[in-house]
């Protein structure tokens, strides 16, 4: 089991959350239909990093907020959590990606 610290509700079991996906992907602007690659990247391309990874979870049994989770895929350690707009990796400067 993982315990995810919901920025609003506090630490909760991961069973209260629904995994949404990779939080590092940016949706191309709605009006922007010229950039095929950007859409392809947003919809399909997913890395499978060993080490730190930003993920999006929804606290579906709680406040229903989407929560950004910085997780180490190697150890399952959750290093930080925040709201979708937060950049957790910057916040945890001391840590390098893909450790």
């Amino acid at each position: 089991m993982l315990i995810i610290n919901c920025p609003l509700c506090g630490p909760r079991d991961h069973a209260e959350f629904t995994y949404v996906g990779d939080a590092t992907k940016n949706r191309p602007k709605n009006g922007d239909s010229s950039n095929d690659n950007a859409w392809y990247d947003f919809v399909y391309l997913r890395d499978n990093p060993k080490g730190l990874h930003e993920e999006l979870w929804q606290h579906s049994f709680g406040c229903r907020c989407f929560v950004k989770v910085l997780r180490n895929t190697l150890t399952h350690e959750i290093i930080a959590t925040g709201m979708p707009k937060d950049n957790l990796i910057l916040k945890e400067k001391g840590l390098e990606l893909n450790v």
């Binding site: 629904t18 949404v20 949706r27 999006l56 929804q58 579906s60 229903r64 989407f66 979708p84 707009k85």
Partner: peptide, 17 residues
């Protein structure tokens, strides 16, 4: 029912706040 609600919440919270 649940998936559509989450789908809409996702766009409202993450993409179009």
């Amino acid at each position: 029912a649940a998936a559509v609600l989450s789908h809409m919440e996702y766009y409202l919270q993450v993409q179009w706040p």
